[in-house]
Simulated assay, not measured.
Amino acid sequence: MEKTTFGTVEAAKNKRGLIIMISLAVLIVIAFIISMNTGYIRLTPMELINTLFGKGTAKQELILFQFRLPRIVISVLIGAGLAVSGAVMQGVFRNALADPGILGINAGAGIMVMLLISFYPTATAAPVYLLPMVAFVGAGVTAALIYALAYKRHQGISPMRLLLTGVAVAAGMSAAMIVLTLRLDPEKYQFVATWLAGSIWGTSWKFVLSLLPWILILVPYVIYKARVMNVLNLGEQTAVGLGAAVTKEQFRLLAAAVGLAAASVAVSGGIGFVGLVGPHLARRLVGPKHQLMLPTSALLGSLLVITADTIGRWILQPSEIPTGIVVAVIGAPYFLYLLARTKS
């Protein structure tokens, strides 16, 4: 009887989670359509439909296919990547405030991207497909540094010590990036300023193709490891008792999280708080079970970034507000709220 009741409850939760994910996917599609018609030059619904089916003017096709669609697709991809990265870090470190932006992972990736671009005459001349790899190296070194500084023998990693270490490293990385900009020419300086503000700078199909493999490989891999993350959340001793190779699994999951954050940052700039807000809202909607929480986080992250980017392009036309600033307006108060609720 108890097993039947438990199975019924689980089935109800899974059904509810599926409905929520479908609803979020529908909202993303709606935001996608609205975003295609957002910009200095507007397209009527009929012009949009005609252009999508190849019946628009050359100007309309240029606006939609070369300028807007790549940026919108990138917004969806980086939102999913950053949100899943944050969910993994929160799960592995068992720290509700973990986020690749707050912990300095984004800054570590960004400084390597900036160093690579400094060797080329313009930012767009840098090898697009190499950017995620270089960002991954920077993010990985930063993650290792934070782990080493936050770890204490016989005590492990305290959630608050990890947070404070990450904030300090992020501040140091950002300061180093600003100092390095003093040696750059005006065009590259403008690029760094744009990156720091969190403006999506990679807006061509080349950037979509450079980011897509990372998202298509690492997000499914992390979702595949959802059961392992459920076990890790029970605590290290319990996980070992259940037969989990804790250290190996933590390393693999963190490598995937760092890869997602680095690849996203390489084309999006320093957009923060997506990895914090997405997983937290997902837990509130579908619960802590990672089989549901991870895909819900990805959908929420995509919805958050595409909405923020659309608002940023619409609110002060013909100028733009960087996407990172719009996300920060939402994420910073939520971060302070979570920090106030944290007991240790």
Rank of each mutant, 00 (worst) to 15 (best):
E2K: 07
F6V: 04
K13Q: 10
K15G: 06
R16W: 09
R16D: 03
L18E: 04
I20L: 08
M21S: 13
L24W: 03
V26L: 11
L27D: 11
A31T: 11
A31H: 07
G39S: 00
G39L: 00
I41P: 02
L43H: 08
L48H: 05
F53Y: 14
F53G: 08
G54V: 14
K59C: 15
Q60C: 09
Q60V: 12
Q66V: 06
P70H: 07
L77I: 13
I78T: 09
G79S: 13
A83F: 07
S85D: 09
V88E: 08
V88Y: 03
G91C: 09
F93Y: 15
F93T: 07
G101K: 03
G104K: 00
N106L: 00
L116Y: 07
L116Q: 05
T124D: 12
A126Q: 01
V134P: 02
V134W: 01
V134R: 06
A135C: 01
F136R: 00
V137I: 10
V137K: 01
Y147H: 12
K152S: 06
K152Q: 13
R153G: 05
H154C: 04
Q155D: 13
P159I: 07
L162M: 15
V167W: 06
A168S: 15
M173G: 02
I178L: 15
R183T: 15
L184Y: 15
K188Y: 05
Y189T: 15
F191G: 09
F191D: 07
A193Q: 15
W195C: 03
A197R: 15
G198W: 14
S204W: 14
S210V: 14
P213S: 12
I215Y: 04
L218W: 11
V219W: 12
Y224D: 08
A226M: 05
N230V: 05
N233D: 12
L234T: 14
E236I: 01
E236F: 03
Q237M: 07
A239Q: 02
G241C: 04
V246A: 02
V246Y: 01
F251S: 00
F251D: 00
R252W: 01
G259A: 00
G272C: 12
P279C: 12
R284S: 13
L285S: 03
T296G: 01
L303S: 03
T307P: 02
E320L: 09
P322E: 14
A328Y: 12
V329Y: 15
I330G: 05
Y334P: 08
Y337A: 13
K343I: 05
S344A: 13
